[in-house]
């Protein structure tokens, strides 16, 4: 135990653990995605490789690994190679500070939330670099779209997070989780006495998370029916595979964050049984429920048009999130003012 508690060993273990988690998770979320799409369209999905297709990710991975990584002539070869790494690194960094359980967190930073959002925005830059380095018109159009989309959606997301910060008063994700102990009525989602619009903020957060991770119906980055594959057009083999993995890793980070911020993290919904392994169980239960919702949404709604995507953000989500911000501020501070005056 003393060996395991050494700091370098601990960091190394978490690093390996997070990498393995992200890799396996991406592989099996692809399968879950295809299975989910199948169910919704009333077909079985991949079912040939292994029992019910559970070996499909292995087959996909082998296929991608076996392919040659092409750097097309005329591209900026350094940026072209760098972009997949840059797009993969931020979600790995974000997972460092996510509390998976009572004691399962790589680093409980007191500015954890800030770290997640600052690394989260690098993702956009990496996608833009990938598109730019490709020297391909589809990729560049996609890069421009990604930037304007992410700029538009980061604002309501951060406004919602500010609302939460006003409530919690801390940026440490572990502390935010600890504040939501004792049953689901203590979760931030249901703290209606602080702000009756709390469920609305959750919906805003979730929508922005979908847009930030470039998921359907907001998958403007990889609009395969209009932009070939968007920023990934020139990528093949594992280069493409890494972009794909990063998309799923981003979804996991987004859903983990939504779980921590709104659904009580590893706290159990009934108030008991939230220590140790139970905490892990609750955390993953909530996170995967959100991830499955993301998949469900993808196969329900068609891709929006770009202007309606921006309209949704600037005309609906930003005013709404500003309103919740104001309301929360008013509800928190007006009683104090009242007391001071009387």
């Amino acid at each position: 135990m003393t060996f395991l508690s050494l700091e370098p060993i601990r960091v190394l273990l978490y690093l390996v653990g997070i990498c393995a988690f992200v890799g396996a998770n991406a592989a099996y979320l692809v399968l879950a995605e295809r299975k989910g799409a199948g169910r919704i369209q009333r077909r079985p999905g991949p079912n040939e490789a292994g029992w019910a297709g559970w070996m499909q990710p292995l087959a996909d991975g082998l296929k991608l690994l076996a392919k040659q990584i092409m750097v097309p002539p005329g591209t900026d070869s350094l940026l072209f190679r760098l972009a997949p790494l840059l797009v993969m690194a931020p979600p790995l960094m974000c997972l460092v500070t996510i509390p998976f359980g009572e004691n399962v967190v790589a680093r409980d930073l007191n500015l954890g939330l800030l770290l997640v959002f600052s690394f989260g925005s690098i993702n956009v830059m990496a996608l833009m670099l990938g598109g730019w380095a490709s020297r391909n018109k589809y990729a560049i159009i996609s890069a421009a779209r990604v930037v304007s989309q992410n700029v538009a959606y980061e604002i309501p997301m951060l406004l919602v997070v500010i609302t939460l910060l006003m409530m919690t008063g801390t940026m440490s994700l572990q502390e935010i989780t600890a504040q939501q102990a004792g049953g689901f009525w203590h979760w931030n989602l249901f703290k209606l006495w602080v702000n009756p619009l709390m469920p609305v903020t959750f919906v805003i957060f979730f929508t922005c998370m979908l847009a930030e991770t470039n998921r359907a119906p907001f998958d403007m980055a990889e609009a395969e029916s209009e932009l070939v594959a968007g920023a990934f057009t020139e990528y093949g083999g594992m280069g493409f595979g890494v972009f794909f993995m990063a998309e799923y890793a981003n979804i996991v980070v987004g859903c983990c964050l939504a779980t921590v911020l709104f659904l009580g993290g590893w706290q159990s919904p009934i108030g008991i049984l939230s220590s140790g392994a139970w905490g892990l169980l609750w955390f993953f239960l909530k996170t995967y429920a959100l991830i499955l919702t993301v998949i469900w949404i993808r196969w329900t709604f068609p891709r929006t048009q770009f202007y309606s995507l921006l309209n949704l953000s600037w005309k609906i989500l930003i005013p709404l999130s500003l309103a919740t911000l104001l309301l929360t501020g008013a509800m928190m501070k007006l009683p104090l003012l009242w007391r001071a005056l009387s």
């Binding site: 989910g36 199948g38 169910r39 919704i40 369209q41 009333r42 077909r43 079985p44 919906v203 469900w296 949404i297 196969w299 329900t300 709604f301 609906i316 709404l320």
Partner: peptide, 25 residues
């Protein structure tokens, strides 16, 4: 906005219903 959100929920309900039906492949 409210009506639009409601229509999204209706869409989700439809796909959920389809997903719970038997596979026809």
């Amino acid at each position: 906005t409210f009506l639009g959100f409601k229509s999204l929920l209706v869409g989700l309900r439809i796909t959920a219903r389809e997903a719970s039906r038997p596979i026809i492949t």
